[in-house]
Design a protein around this nucleic acid. Structure first.
Ligand code: FES
Ligand code: FES
Lengths: 158, 158
DNA sequence: GTAAAGGGTACTGATCCGGTCCAATTTTGG
DNA sequence: CCAAAATTGGACCGGATCAGTACCCTTTAC
């Protein structure tokens, strides 16, 4: 239903915590306690993020995780893609070549792709630093419509 | 994975078809053949859309479905909400009162809600008429960022 | 060498989605 | 009135995906 998975949600939560103290090394048990999440789950998520290059990991007794890049340079889109694969609201994405069969009769695919891209870009423009800023001073994302015309008055559909 | 369900995808496809001949009555078997989809599936989707008031249905021998409103006034957001419930990328939405337990330690919820709203609005501004326009003359949705300054270092709130 | 940490993989239970089917109701039309 | 055609409503099942857990291995500090 247009949902990110819980793992991704947790992942962002953990990453913002990491972003609070850049340079410091956080261990998985420590993060699990702080976030009140089960350790195996936290461990699993951190592993995935490290594998995708979003986290640097240090093994051994004094090991732990830290951000692999400044929080401002990590977008939520990257986190989502790291944990659950490419972002796309529809099944039939332009990148996916075969299948769907309906492609010929489908008059909406190109428009979906445009929407997909818009959402992806919206998520790509939000950094971890902004997610952690709970002050909410500025609007995160604004949507404008250019050259729409067709349904000018239709925005009130709700 | 940030996906709409196939039913919703089909639903939009069907609705754009309906939008092509406003006023005319389409039967479920007819639409199923045109879209090369199984009849039970089409029927199920149309039922849901009719129940939510997006389609008018006429029972009996000469029955069928037609749009309950002009195509310009039906947004994809409404279609999605009709078939799969409220739009929200995260589990813990502001509308959902209880649960999540993490709410106290969760520093990202308010920002997620803002993202949720942005996506919802983006989908609310696209009408069926625009989805059917395969010419793609104009951009459907554009994203702007105000007061963000991600590129600059100003956003470094810490 | 041992303890503490990450790394990888496999497994299970629950949930949800896709898809199908059947029985009931309503309308047309003879 | 009766039969045919269409919508309506609900139940049902198989499969995919997710959440969560467990086990075993490798690496490092002391
Ligand atoms: S449904 Fe797959 S291309 Fe439109
Ligand atoms: S994870 Fe539920 S409020 Fe943040």
């Amino acid at each position: 239903m247009i949902r990110i998975t819980k793992q991704t949600d947790y992942g962002i939560l953990l990453l913002t915590r990491l972003a609070g103290d850049p340079g410091r090394l956080f261990t998985a048990p420590e993060l699990a306690i702080e976030a009140t999440l089960p350790l195996p789950m936290v461990s699993k998520i951190l592993k995935a993020l490290a594998r995708q290059g979003l986290l640097s990991s240090q093994r051994g007794v004094k090991g732990g995780y830290c951000l692999a890049a400044p929080a401002e340079e990590i977008s939520v889109a990257r986190v989502i893609e790291a944990i659950e694969g490419p972002i796309g609201i529809t099944e039939c994405i332009e990148e996916a070549p075969g299948e769907c069969g309906l492609a010929e009769v489908c008059s909406v695919r190109s428009n979906w792709n445009r929407i997909n891209r818009a959402i992806r870009e919206a998520l790509a423009q939000i950094s971890l630093a902004e997610m952690g800023a709970n002050s909410g001073s500025a609007q995160l994302v604004t949507l404008g419509n250019s050259g729409k015309g067709a349904g000018g008055a239709s925005a009130a559909t709700r």
